[in-house]
C-alpha cells in the first residue's frame, strides 16, 4: 500500500519533471559538463564500493565509466552520486544524474509508470539459497531442500518466492523469518536453520562475512527474476540509445574476444567485419563505419569503452567473478553461446 502510494506520487512527479527535463538533450548536457553524472548505490559489495583512496569500484561503477569513455573518450570523467533506494528515481527524474546504475531491478511498473527506461540487464540476479556443506553434504540443489528450515528476512518478496517455489515443487519447508537481515544470517550461522535465502549476489557477499566462507555453498538454482540494469530518463531517445549500445558493445566485445589489452591490436589487425564495425575501423576506401557518428558520438566510442574499462567478462570477473573475493559463478550471466543469458544484437 505504502509502496503503491510512493509509486503513484513519483509517477505524478515524474510527469512534471520530464516536461522540464526533456527540453535539453542529455548528451549535450554531458558534453557541456565534461562528465557523466552517474547515480550509484551507497555501498554494495561488488557493485559500487568506495575504496580507501576514494575511488569507486564495482560493476555498476564500471558501467558508468564505460559510458563516459564512449561519450567523452575518458573513463575517468564520471561524477558518482551515491543514492539511497528511495531517492534514486527522483534523482534521475529531476536531472540530478544522467544515468542510474544502481543495482535496480527492471520491473514493469518501474518501466511503464515512472518515466524511466531500462537500457539493458547488466546482471541477472535472483533469489538463491546458501547451505553449509559441512553440515549438509548431500544438498547439491534446491530440490534437496525438502523439509528444510529456511531463514530469511520478513516482509520482502523472498518469503513469497520461497512459498511459491516449494509449493509448485511439492516440497515441505519451514520458514524462519527475521526483521533484520543480520539476524537471519546470525540464525543461519548458529545452525537454527538449514539454509538462508536472499538474492544470489547478496548470498555471495554474506558468505564472505561468515566465519568459514568455504564451508558455505550457494546452490545453483535461482527461483526469482531480479534483472539489474542501468536506467535513463524516458523521453531522450538519443541518450537511451547510447547507454543501451554501450552495454551491447561490452557484451559483443566479449563474444568477439576483444579485451582491454588487445583492443588496439584488434582494431589494427582484425579482419573480422564484426570487430571492424564495432571498433569503428575506417575501411580501405576511407569511409567510416558510421555507427558512432550515427549515435552522435565519436567513431571510437566502443574502442574507448573496451580499452579503458574492459569487456563484459572482464568487468564481471574483476568485480564479482573469479578475480574478486566474491567469486560469483557466471551462471545466468554467461554469454548466450556459453549457456547464459547475456546476448547483444549485432553491430551492423
Amino acid at each position: 500500500m505504502k509502496n503503491k502510494l510512493i509509486t503513484l506520487m513519483l509517477g505524478a512527479a515524474a510527469t512534471v519533471a520530464i516536461a522540464g527535463a526533456a527540453s535539453a538533450g542529455t548528451l549535450d548536457d554531458v558534453r557541456q559538463h565534461g562528465f557523466v553524472q552517474c547515480g550509484v548505490s551507497q555501498g554494495l559489495m561488488g557493485f559500487s564500493v568506495p575504496d580507501a583512496q576514494n575511488n569507486w569500484t564495482g560493476m555498476d561503477v564500471d558501467f558508468c565509466r564505460a559510458v563516459a569513455a564512449a561519450v567523452l573518450g575518458d573513463a575517468t570523467k564520471v561524477k558518482f552520486t551515491p543514492l539511497t533506494a528511495k531517492e534514486r528515481f527522483t534523482a534521475l527524474q529531476s536531472g540530478e544524474i544522467d544515468l542510474l546504475s544502481r543495482n535496480t531491478t527492471w520491473t514493469m511498473s518501474r518501466d511503464t509508470s515512472l518515466g524511466l527506461k531500462f537500457a539493458g540487464i547488466m546482471y541477472y540476479d535472483g533469489q538463491g539459497f546458501i547451505v553449509n556443506k559441512a553440515k549438509h553434504p548431500n544438498v547439491k540443489s534446491v530440490n534437496d531442500l525438502a523439509g528444510a528450515t529456511i531463514c530469511t528476512q520478513s516482509g520482502t518478496t523472498t518469503e513469497l518466492n520461497i512459498a511459491d517455489y516449494f509449493k509448485s515443487h511439492k516440497m515441505d519447508y519451514k520458514l524462519l523469518t527475521f526483521e533484520k537481515n543480520d539476524e537471519a544470517i546470525a540464525a543461519y550461522q548458529d545452525g537454527r536453520c538449514d539454509s538462508y535465502s536472499t538474492d544470489q549476489s547478496g548470498l555471495y557477499a554474506q558468505r564472505l562475512k561468515m566465519a568459514t566462507p568455504d564451508d558455505n555453498v550457494v546452490l545453483p538454482e535461482i527461483i526469482s527474476k531480479e534483472p539489474l540494469g542501468p536506467v535513463v530518463r524516458q523521453g531522450d531517445d538519443a541518450w537511451f540509445n547510447i547507454v543501451k549500445w554501450v552495454y551491447f558493445a561490452l557484451v559483443n566485445s566479449e563474444e568477439l574476444g576483444i579485451t582491454s589489452k588487445n583492443a588496439d591490436d584488434m582494431k589494427k589487425t582484425s579482419t573480422n567485419p564484426e570487430v571492424q564495425r564495432l571498433l569503428g575501423v575506417t575501411s580501405a576506401d576511407g569511409t567510416a563505419a558510421g555507427f558512432g557518428i550515427g549515435m552522435g558520438v565519436d567513431e571510437g566510442w566502443a574502442l574507448a569503452a573496451i580499452k579503458q574499462v574492459g569487456n563484459y567478462g572482464e568487468i564481471f570477473d574483476r568485480n564479482v567473478g573469479k578475480d574478486s573475493p566474491l567469486k560469483i559463478e557466471r551462471g545466468k550471466n554467461a554469454l548466450w553461446k556459453d549457456g547464459g543469458l547475456q546476448y547483444a544484437p549485432p553491430v551492423r
Partner: peptide, 21 residues
Amino acid sequence: GIYDLLGIINAGLQDSKWAAP
C-alpha cells in the same frame, strides 16, 4: 544519502577486500 561518519563506515563495510566476520 549523505555520508556522515556512520554512513562512510557502512560504505566501507561493503568493500569485498575487507569482508570478514
